[in-house]
Simulated scan of single mutants.
Amino acid sequence: MPPRPESFGWKGNEMVKVDRDIMVLANPEIAGLPNWVIALVVAGGLAAALSTAAGLLLAIASSISHDLLKGVFMTDISEKNELMAGRIAMAGAIALAGYFGLHPPDFAAGTVAIAFGLAASSIFPALMMGIFNKKMNRSGAIWGMVSGIGVTMLYVFQHKGIMFIPGTSFLGDMGPSWFLGISPNAFGAVGALVNFAVAIAVSKVTAAPPEHIQHLVEDIRVPKGAAAASAH
């Protein structure tokens, strides 16, 4: 009688964990596709990742160096210093992305969901109200964005750890999806509602935008010279 598998230390299943990201990458091999097809799939995925990363890095660098420093905090900054600030911002973004790579908040799809949730809780309401609410002012937009992304990040960090470090949280263990059963990946919708509410409330108690800004918003919604809609 041959020896039983347990005598060799076999536990009954050699696959302890199924990583979903690895399964996606291994699908071409599992399907038995030729090597050149697998190479094309890998090359396409790598090219898409690099192009997206490059575009986002340029957007981050220009937003910090031009929009914030040049436009708000240091209006007299020289072009040389503005370029240096953009490079520093790009290096900081790379370091932060590397940190999140070492402490990923979730698998690939979950990470993308969190990213879109943060965008929905911060940028989306400001864009919508900037087009459809001519009374929205600077203070309302800023405080709405800070409130929306703050609430979303608080909920995400409460579930996944501060800065996505497991075992850390602000309020201790409160159970999974404790707020109305909403998962942290989908909490961006709640953050967007908070953003809308805070922005509208702050804009009502602060000074309204200048008249030319309100006319600009109306021109965006209804271009100058456009005739009224008519039935056919």
Rank of each mutant, 00 (worst) to 15 (best):
N27G: 06
G117N: 03
M129L: 15
V156Y: 00
W178M: 11
G161Y: 12
G191H: 00
G12K: 10
A120Q: 05
L40I: 14
I38L: 13
V217R: 07
A47K: 09
G188R: 02
D21S: 05
K135V: 06
A31Y: 01
A49P: 04
I165P: 09
L69N: 05
G44V: 08
S147V: 00
A201K: 02
V198C: 08
A126E: 01
A109V: 13
L180D: 06
T168P: 09
M163R: 02
T152M: 03
L46V: 15
I123Y: 10
I88A: 14
I77Y: 03
F170P: 06
A47D: 04
H212M: 03
L216G: 12
L83T: 07
S122N: 10
I213D: 09
N185T: 11
K11R: 14
T52Q: 02
G191S: 00
S183P: 05
A48P: 06
E82D: 04
E79R: 08
S7G: 00
G32M: 06
V156I: 15
M128S: 07
M128A: 15
K80C: 07
A186V: 01
H232P: 12
P105H: 03
G150S: 12
M174E: 05
F157G: 03
S62H: 08
K135P: 02
T111P: 09
Q158A: 10
K11D: 15
V146F: 12
A227P: 04
Q158F: 09
A31V: 03
L58A: 15
P2Q: 12
S65W: 08
G188N: 07
P210Y: 05
G101Y: 14
G181I: 09
A31S: 09
G161I: 11
F132C: 00
P209C: 09
S203P: 02
S122A: 10
P223F: 06
A47L: 15
V72A: 01
Q214F: 05
N35G: 09
M145V: 12
I131Q: 01
D21P: 02
I182P: 03
D67V: 03
K204A: 15
V112N: 00
A89R: 05
V217T: 14
F107C: 01
S121D: 06
M145P: 07
A53K: 05
K17F: 10
L50R: 02
G44W: 02
K204G: 03
G32A: 08
F8G: 06
P104S: 10
P28K: 08
A39I: 11
I182V: 15
G98S: 09
S203L: 05
H66A: 11
L193P: 06
L33G: 04
I182Y: 08
A43F: 14
A48S: 15
P223T: 03
Q214W: 02
V151G: 01
E6L: 04
M145W: 05
G101N: 13
K17P: 00
K80N: 02
S230K: 13
T111F: 04
L193C: 14
I123K: 05
F132K: 03
A231P: 07
F179R: 01
L56F: 07
G101L: 14
F124K: 00
F196L: 14
